[in-house]
């Protein structure tokens, strides 16, 4: 196996009754890559992602995530990935520190390690003043950044982000992407599922799912050339309309 490929998917399929939610998708993601996984609501991207993070069993096909088979080693996958979604991020009624300690604990970090990590994290995000405040009282942008850092606490090989920056103000959003670039630069693979096409522009490569199939997969630049479009949004519109 090529060590640079942290996600390898071949012919992965998921059926619900007679409905094929994910139809034989095939793709690879390399180490340190920012991979955009795009599709409209109901195109099957959530189902596909659930299979990759080991919480849903595929019907057929092959998939290895972080070197582990999704059929046989789902538990090992979970230890090696981080996950952040806009809907579920952090506990609003716990403080910044308590959240970090809690999530560190979930991933089995030692108490000492959690202490070190949270000190570094709080300093990097400049959260010293609010470290003991409830997360619920922080502005949305801060929460997002904190939540991303928390998903990286256990140094996962891959981090899955579900629509990470929808609705965030433009400046915070850029700070967020800087954090993503940094993580990728340090070798973490970033897997972004979204239906916001402007988020797609930031990815190294993107795949676009339509009706359960991957209909396009390339760098944003090449996709735009291929579809003679100015933005990823136009690429998407052209693809979805067939």
């Amino acid at each position: 196996m090529n060590n640079n490929k942290v996600i390898q998917v071949e012919g992965l399929t998921k059926m619900f009754g007679y409905f094929t939610a994910v139809n034989a998708i095939t793709f690879d993601v390399e180490k340190g890559e920012i991979f955009g996984f795009l599709g409209a609501n109901g195109a099957g991207k959530t189902t596909a992602m659930k299979m990759l993070i080991g919480i849903s069993n595929p019907n057929s096909g092959k998939a290895k995530v972080a070197g582990f088979d999704v059929f046989t080693h789902a538990e090992d996958i979970k230890k090696n990935i981080g996950y952040m979604s806009q809907k579920f991020a952090l506990y609003d009624d716990l403080t910044v520190k308590e959240n970090i300690t809690f999530f560190g604990g979930i991933y089995g970090l030692s108490r000492k390690r959690i202490k070190e990590k949270s000190a570094v994290l709080i300093e990097e995000l400049e959260l010293e003043k609010v470290a003991n405040k409830l997360v619920g009282s922080l502005p949305l942008g801060w929460k997002q950044k904190l939540s991303f850092s928390v998903s990286l606490l256990h140094d996962p090989k891959i981090v899955f982000l579900d629509e990470p920056t929808g609705g965030v103000d433009p400046i915070t959003r850029r700070q967020f992407w800087e954090m993503i670039y940094k993580a990728a630069d340090q070798g973490t693979t970033v897997f972004v599922t979204t239906h916001y096409m402007d988020e797609a522009e930031y990815c190294d490569r993107v795949s676009i799912m339509v009706n359960g199939k991957i209909e396009a997969l390339d760098t944003p630049k090449k996709l735009k050339e291929q579809f003679k479009a100015e933005t990823m949004n136009d690429v998407f519109l052209k693809l979805a309309r067939g």
Partner: peptide, 9 residues
């Protein structure tokens, strides 16, 4: 918010 690009258009 939360609507895909085609529907948005």
């Amino acid at each position: 918010t939360g609507v895909d690009p085609v529907s948005r258009k």
